[in-house]
Design a protein around this nucleic acid. Structure first.
Lengths: 125, 125
DNA sequence: GGTTGCCTTTGACTCGACTCAAAGGTTTAT
DNA sequence: ATAAACCTTTGAGTCGAGTCAAAGGCAACC
């Protein structure tokens, strides 16, 4: 699978794909005879992983760290697990925060329904 | 309440507070005789609103738009409500996305428990 | 009355994460 | 066989969102 195809499939720009690889946020991708990237199943898994994590707000730097550990082989299994757990905690917090904001806005919108003046109310009702 | 106090209270830098106001992401704050900002209850509500929204990933630009509408008075009530609803949709999507990633990582971590090799598995199990 | 610690503005700087442009090689369709 | 549509690298540019530094004003304690 070539760059643009992958880009389309995962809704990422080709530039971003190359950028991630350049930075080490995904491992180096296989190349064909012409030197063109040719993503195999495993490469796609890494792309999918990176996209997921980025979408959840995980920094590129974290991804690089993870790949770094992966490259060092099976002695880093525990470290990688720890890194993922750490990210899970962060994501969980973000999730809760966003949920909270969501509820508050919902409340605010509900107030708009009833208060038909020059409304500006608190978020925390 | 003075700038630093507010900054501490909401875990924002004083610079950010001034930046938001400068950009119009919150309305102008009352000043004391010396020209120092003195946040009253309503100002604090706006700060809290801005922080909430920013934390949920809403752009400063959106906040500016909202404040713009607010300044224009009660003819913009519907527009403001629409804007908030739009943001709610976006936030809801983000929420779902993050939740999905969270579940996937959880799964991945679980796999680490059982697969004790040079593990790298798919996110989607 | 001086030092410390706030406060102000203005304008420049940083940082992360892309994004684009230039210059050029390959492959596919006509 | 030539154009269109890909691909490559390198290096520079952009963009959002702060963040910092300079230069100076007020305020309170010792």
């Amino acid at each position: 699978m070539k760059t643009k195809e992958v880009a389309t499939k995962y809704q990422i720009s080709a530039d971003t794909l190359r950028y991630w690889e350049r930075e080490g946020a995904i491992p180096p991708v296989r190349r064909d005879a012409a030197g063109y990237r040719d993503y195999d199943e495993e490469d796609l898994d890494w792309v999918s992983f990176a996209k997921c994590m980025r979408d959840a707000g995980v920094s590129v730097e974290y991804l690089i760290e993870y790949i770094e550990l992966f490259k060092q082989g099976n002695t880093t299994l525990q470290a990688r697990k720890d890194l993922l757990r750490e990210q899970m905690d962060t994501i969980a917090k973000r999730l809760a925060e966003i949920q909270e904001t969501y509820d508050k806005i919902q409340n605010k919108v509900a107030h708009y329904e009833t208060h038909v003046e020059n409304y500006h109310g608190k978020l925390s009702v």
